[in-house]
């Protein structure tokens, strides 16, 4: 019984999400402004139009440190002058790493992911283009 519990514990540890801090500076940042930079991946990697997806964000701040402040995320279609119909929520999973949930792009075309970080001197805005097939 005790062995079974140990095995279960080890299995849980192995399957737990990685809680590593962001690796700063980011080798290939997708967006940068001043001392701040970030990159992200999507889950699923290629979401379909109308399919909810998550965004895994790595963010770095001044002096190549992991950014630990709040992040607001959004997406819009500049040419169409509209944003999403949803407001994603963001949680931090480790210093400099965040998971945003609640993205849903309802139209194919040129979208822009927008990020707002809390900089030392005020909001820091970053953006990165995304083509939704």
């Amino acid at each position: 019984m005790r062995l079974a519990g140990l095995i279960t514990g080890v299995a849980a540890l192995l399957s737990a999400p990685t809680l590593a801090a962001a690796n700063c500076p980011i080798a290939a940042p997708m967006a940068a402004a001043g001392d701040y930079q970030l990159s992200y991946t999507l889950t699923p990697a290629l979401p379909a139009v109308g399919q909810p997806f998550q965004m895994m964000i790595q963010a770095c701040g001044p002096a190549n440190s992991a950014y630990t402040g709040p992040i607001l995320v959004d997406a819009d279609m500049p040419a169409h002058r509209h944003s999403m119909n949803y407001k994603p929520s963001v949680i931090s999973t480790a210093p400099g790493t965040y998971v945003a949930e609640g993205f849903l792009l309802h139209m194919p075309g040129d979208w822009r992911f927008k990020f707002r970080l809390a900089g030392a001197n005020g909001p820091v805005r970053l953006a990165h283009g995304h083509v939704q097939p």
């Binding site: 909810p52 119909n85 949803y86 407001k87 929520s89 609640g102």
Partner: peptide
Amino acid sequence: PAAIPSRHVALQGRA
């Protein structure tokens, strides 16, 4: 997962 849009739908003026 089916409730993700329900949790995140936003009341915006353009609606």
